[in-house]
Design a protein around this nucleic acid. Structure first.
Lengths: 105, 105
DNA sequence: CCGTCATTTCCATATTATTGGAATAATGGA
DNA sequence: TCCATTATTCCAATAATATGGAAATGACGG
């Protein structure tokens, strides 16, 4: 992962509305939800939601699939893992014992 | 963790300069670095760096300790873990098997 | 105290993001 | 084909953020 991608993903999540959308999709993984259902759950106007979904998709954090008249969105959980790996890259110069808490990447 | 805290932390990282600062501190955990050394490594003007360090500190992602004339900054690695836990909260409605990749929180 | 060094605050500028109404597409059923 | 439904694009007002020079703060050594 490159810095540019990480900033894109972090910026996508660093916004109340989008964070709510993403977390809703995480809860509803792996089936996902249609745009309409998301808007209904979060009481968000369609254009606003569309804008945010596009941002999340461009950041690689959600995937979209056309299903007839609907578009189904899904959280890309691997995106979060990639982000964390990037953040902790070469943590403690590779002395994992000195690194805190749980030993993710 | 509350939504507000998560947005604060994500926004702190969602910026190229700050992301660079944080990752530098992660690499140099757990000792940390003084403000001056960070600015030197990243070739960043002092006021700009100070602004970004303050933002990271307010987000709970770095800690600061006065050391004589210097101020030492350290990455708070647990902050990242808390963030991930929040993002993946109730993932797949608690069906961890259906959740992807590695089984963090 | 006084000078020096490390860091922060002040401030103005430039840039970028969020929001939702109205209009526009795209799909499928009758 | 025509209509109802679903979702997106267009656009403009509003708000928030990043940047760095100059000045101010704070800490230590002499």
């Amino acid at each position: 992962m490159e810095t540019k991608d990480a900033v894109l993903a972090l910026a996508a999540l660093a916004q109340e509305s989008r964070l709510a959308v993403f977390r809703l999709l995480v809860r509803n993984a792996p089936e996902g939800l249609t745009a309409g259902l998301i808007g209904e759950q979060l009481e968000m106007p369609a254009p606003t939601l569309s804008f945010h979904l596009k941002t999340l998709a461009q950041a690689g954090l959600v995937s979209m699939v056309q299903e007839g008249r609907y578009v189904r969105y899904r959280a890309v959980l691997a995106g979060v893992d990639a982000l964390v790996a990037f953040l902790k890259e070469d943590c403690c110069r590779g002395n994992p014992k000195r690194c805190s808490t749980k030993g993710s990447s």
